[in-house]
Every structure is written in C-alpha cells, then in structure tokens.
Amino acid sequence: MRILSTLFAGLLFGTGLILSGMANPAKVQNFLDLFGTWDPSLAFVMGGAIMVTAPGFWFVQKRAKPLFHDAFHLPTRTDFDARLIVGAATFGVGWGLGGFCPGPAVTALPLGAIGTLWFVPAMLVGIVVAKYATTSQRKTLAV
C-alpha cells in the first residue's frame, strides 16, 4: 500500500498536469503572455488545486500522523531570506523561457520532444549545482 499510494499519487499528479494543459509549454507561455496571445486557463489549475488541497491538508493534519510514517515532514521556516527570493526569481525566468516547470517537464519526458530532451537533463544539472552550492555553504558556516 505504501508503494501503491505513492505510485497512484504520481500518476494522478501527471494526469492532472496533462489534462490541465500545464504539460504544454505553449499554453504556459500564453498564460504568461498578458500582452499577447493570453490564455488565462492556467489560473484555473492553481485555483482548482488550492481549492482541494487547502481543506484537504487541514483535514489530514488533524490526525496525529500520516498513515505510513510516524510524523508529518512539513517545512517549519517562516523567515524570509535572500535565497528564497533570488531562487524563486531565477526559477521564474527559466519557467518563462522554457514554458516548463519541474513536474510537467518530467511528465512530458516520455513524449520525447527535442526541447524536453534538452530541458530535463539541464534541469537536473541545475538541481545538483544548487544542492552542492547550498551544502558547501553550510559546511563553511560550520567550520
């Protein structure tokens, strides 16, 4: 059940991305093109997701722990730092340039478009570079 629940969640997430149009970079870029061929559809994706997730999370977290683990793994930070804003700003530029964010890019990978085949490995490299950059920072601080 542990494995099946996670597999099901991934499948559901990917199907949602495809159905919503998020896995189509042209649609994402049109959503972001307010002064051109604007397509407001994707506002409904975020709206629909939050409409379900907000009450769902509230309900689930009334339980002491999740079904298969001893505790919820929730972010605890509430402070603002430069990393959060600079990181989000950098992410937004990439999202606008390619029309892909991480979930849709992975979902679109089996479709084998040339652009996707360039985007996904580059994204993985970006993740590894950022991870090494942030962990070495932590090491330096510890010394």
Binding site: S5, A9, F13, L19, G47, L67, F72
Partner: peptide, 22 residues
C-alpha cells in the same frame, strides 16, 4: 479541463500528505 486537472493535482497532494506526510 484546467480546473479539473488542478483538482487532480490537489488530490495527489492530499494522498501524499495523508499517506506519507510529505
């Protein structure tokens, strides 16, 4: 379609939170 897709994404997030707390 976009609203329904969003709902599926939301349900997936709930499954992951309820089952694994992530």
């Amino acid at each position: 379609a976009s609203l329904l897709g969003g709902v599926l994404i939301g349900l997936s997030a709930i499954v992951l939170m309820a089952a694994h707390g992530r």
